[in-house]
Simulated scan of single mutants.
Amino acid sequence: MNADEKKVIEQIVINTVKKLISEKDSPNRVVLGISNKHIHLSQEDIETLFGKGYELTNMKDLKQPGQYAAKESVKVIGPKGSFDKVRILGPARPESQIEISLTDARTLGIKAPVCESGKLDGTPGITLEGPCGSVTLNQGVIVALRHIHMPTDVAEKLGIKDKDWVCVETSGVRKTIFCNVLARVSDKFDYEMHLDTDEANAAGLNNDDYLKIIPNR
């Protein structure tokens, strides 16, 4: 390989790296976070499951500010099946909520609706079992609607408002376009898209993959 050929190859590498950096820094490129089944608990339910006055233990900070994976987990019991050691996410919330995939719902034997986090009216309930007691919820089990946590400055650049719907395009062998993705806009958010394990596996995606926001269809 002569000097000129080396220069051509070096320039190709430099241009490729610049392109990748540029794409990741572009406001319409969003990093993916894949959500496995997990639980958000009210303080009342935390104390029933773990004891009076109990506080969750922060095991690992999550990407969204103030959110964390707790050391604690509980058993989730449905009419047909159950899951041991389902992770709790903190901090405590006003109302308990369990987020699962459609595959998880079939295992448990419940019909969980696909809906936005916090929209719990009419959702099915379930039983949670902890080391100090159990809780039977009348509602709270959902399949979380795919969504993007979007800081206000990014939303402004993209012309997107809170509760807008967008489409997101993936790449790779299982290239997919996800439509009906809810944009949740707030200064309190870090920029991140959330899919559940069913959706991510179907599209061959991994945590920290970069996806592209495109005009809705």
Rank of each mutant, 00 (worst) to 15 (best):
A183P: 02
I21L: 15
D209F: 08
L89C: 08
V181I: 15
I9P: 01
V185D: 01
Q97H: 09
S117K: 11
G204Y: 11
K161H: 13
P124A: 00
P113M: 10
T176E: 13
V86F: 03
F83S: 06
C132L: 14
D164P: 10
D104H: 01
A69C: 00
D104E: 02
T127L: 01
D4E: 13
V141D: 03
I9M: 09
P94V: 12
I177T: 14
C167S: 15
R106G: 05
D121S: 13
I126G: 11
V185I: 04
V30R: 07
Q43M: 01
I148H: 02
K18Y: 10
T107H: 13
T136I: 02
G53T: 07
A202V: 05
C115W: 02
L49H: 02
I98T: 02
K157R: 12
E55H: 15
S22N: 14
T48Y: 07
P131S: 10
K71I: 01
Y54L: 03
G133Q: 05
G204A: 02
G81A: 11
K188L: 08
T127W: 01
T136A: 00
V17G: 02
G172H: 00
L102M: 15
L108Y: 04
G90N: 00
N15A: 04
R184H: 07
Y68P: 11
D61H: 01
R29Y: 14
Q43E: 04
V13P: 06
K188H: 11
P79N: 08
E169S: 08
I14K: 15
L102W: 03
A203P: 02
K71Y: 09
R87M: 05
F50Q: 04
R29E: 11
W165E: 12
E55C: 12
E44V: 08
L102S: 13
L56V: 02
H40R: 06
V168R: 02
L137Y: 08
I98Q: 01
E10K: 09
C167R: 08
I21W: 09
D190C: 12
G125Y: 05
T107W: 02
K63G: 13
K188G: 09
N36Y: 14
G53W: 13
V114C: 06
S117P: 11
V114M: 11
R93N: 11
N58P: 08
E10D: 14
V143W: 03
G125P: 05
P65C: 00
W165S: 13
R146D: 03
P94R: 14
L89I: 11
K19A: 13
I9E: 07
K6P: 00
D209W: 07
I214E: 04
G118V: 09
P215V: 10
K161N: 15
T170E: 11
K212E: 13
L158Y: 11
V8M: 03
D61M: 01
D162Y: 06
R93D: 09
C115V: 15
K37H: 14
S35A: 15
V166T: 07
V86P: 08
A3L: 10
F50W: 06
S101Q: 02
L182I: 12
R146K: 14
V154I: 15
R29V: 10
F189W: 03
D153K: 09
A3Y: 03
